[in-house]
């Protein structure tokens, strides 16, 4: 049943993407009328049971798509992570360039110490040491790349919080790459097309001289589909995708129950990707 509901939500999320900036569609995006009305900011869950005495993070209103990555599911099945990455590469015509200098990466594997360099690396459990973690764009609520971009070629999609790219506006200054604390952005140092292994006609290829990164599958959401990596993990709960601002969404239920961490929270970028380690 849960799955059905999520499906529906995603369909509607997709519909709004297609509809462009149509305001009424935003209302339908969330199952919670309060959120839909635009004052979801007051619904912040921490306010209800603030056991800690810390400064609360300000919450954006409206839909804010996010992801929970449950590493417990990947520990048993690292192959699934490879499949998820492969699905992304296929869906987005991500070129496979052998030279690490020029690599293009949307979602990729890295060690715990690389994904979470600000966490202590000593005396970690074997599971954490032996496994690879997925790294991807965090679609931050306060993205420093968007702040840095001098042409608004990278921007927050207002209706769902995705940090998107306009490949046709990007001038290739790479300020966003310097600004991103997560190394999530890649630059096309050369024509990427010869390096595309399997060509997907439903997604544009990029030319040289522009920056690219994970787009949370905005184009798939528009068709009512889940992000490619999430779809691969279907039924396992390894990747849960949904509206962080909707208290009734599946992702919020996971976040309410589990202890999660974000990458470099001290950077103040408010990442929308959470990890259960």
């Amino acid at each position: 049943m849960m799955d059905n509901k999520r499906r529906k939500f995603l369909k509607m999320a997709g519909a709004t993407v297609l509809a462009g900036i149509s305001a009424p569609a935003i209302v339908k995006l969330s199952s919670n009328p309060a959120v839909a009305a635009g004052d979801g900011g007051h619904e912040a869950p921490a306010a209800a049971h603030a056991a800690t005495d810390t400064h609360d993070e300000e919450q954006s209103s409206g839909v804010r798509l996010g992801m929970v990555i449950d590493m417990r599911k990947f520990y048993q099945n690292q192959g699934m992570l490879d499949e998820a990455i492969a699905a992304c590469i296929k869906a987005h015509n991500v070129p496979q360039i052998p030279d690490p200098k020029s690599e293009i990466k949307w979602i990729w594997k890295a060690g715990f110490g690389n994904v979470f360099p600000e966490h202590s690396q000593k005396l970690r459990s074997e599971k954490v040491k032996d496994n690879q973690f997925p790294a991807l764009c965090n679609h931050c609520d306060n993205p420093s790349c968007v702040k840095a971009c001098p042409t608004k070629a990278t921007f927050v999609v207002e209706k769902n919080g995705i940090v998107a790219m306009d490949f046709h506006r990007c001038i290739g200054c790479r300020f966003c790459m310097a600004a991103c604390p997560y190394g999530a952005r890649s630059f096309n140092w050369q024509d990427p097309r010869p390096f595309i292994k399997e060509y997907n006609v439903n997604f544009p290829t990029r030319g040289r001289g522009v920056v690219e990164k994970c787009n949370f599958c905005g184009e798939r959401l528009a068709l009512g589909l889940e992000p490619a990596c999430v779809e691969v993990c279907k039924g396992t709960g390894a990747m849960v995708f949904g509206d962080l601002n909707d208290p009734h969404s599946e992702i919020r239920k996971v976040l309410d129950q589990e202890f999660t961490i974000q990458r470099k929270p001290a950077a103040g970028t408010k990442p929308s990707v959470f990890y259960i380690v």
């Binding site: 001098p150 506006r169 990007c170 001038i171 290739g172 200054c173 790479r174 040289r208 522009v210």
Partner: peptide, 10 residues
């Protein structure tokens, strides 16, 4: 610039 011809976008 990766796309010098787009410089005026600024």
């Amino acid at each position: 610039l990766g796309q010098p011809l787009r410089g005026l976008n600024v």
